[in-house]
């Protein structure tokens, strides 16, 4: 019985530790450092979020359209269960960077107000605007804001 308990505790420690190391890199300053010089559309999504699905074709489109203008779409998946994100991506393909934030560390840091949430970041790494939601009206506005920075 005791051995089982020790093994389980060890496993739990291992798993939480693995998560912890995985997430130290997922901080705003690290992302900015890595993609410095790019205008960034930073998007937060999850598989269970219906409007998030609608934003994928648009993000694919703008990534392609502005690829040669130092523009990056970076999307952060917030699913606690990575398999759900995989299933989502199987039916909704993405041609942009996807990072995982299963514990919501970065989401917490940026104090998300809703889902989907997005941030438009200029080449200096400063957040120019923060948005919640994705609709036809909003995507026009988002694209205008991005164009102004390019």
């Amino acid at each position: 019985m005791r051995t089982i308990a020790i093994v389980i505790t060890a496993l739990i420690l291992l798993v939480t530790h693995a998560h912890a190391t995985d997430n130290t890199s997922l901080q705003y300053k690290n992302i900015i450092k890595q993609y410095k010089g790019n205008v960034i559309y930073l998007d937060f999504w999850a598989s269970w979020c219906t409007p998030c699905r609608k934003s994928f074709p648009w993000m694919n489109k703008i990534q392609k359209k502005y690829a040669d203008k130092n523009f990056k779409v970076i999307s952060i998946n917030l699913d606690a269960e990575p398999n759900l994100a995989k299933q989502f991506l199987a039916s909704t393909p993405a041609n942009f960077t996807i990072l995982n934030d299963p514990n919501g560390k970065l989401a917490q840091e940026l104090q998300l107000k809703g889902m989907p949430s997005s941030f438009i970041i200029n080449a200096e790494g400063k957040i120019v605007s923060a948005h919640v939601g994705f609709t036809d009206k909003k995507k026009v506005q988002y694209e205008q804001e991005i164009e102004q920075l390019l």
Partner: peptide, 11 residues
């Protein structure tokens, strides 16, 4: 909950 913790509530 936080907005990203709505996986169950979103069902």
């Amino acid at each position: 909950v936080e907005p990203w913790e709505r996986d169950l509530l979103a069902k």
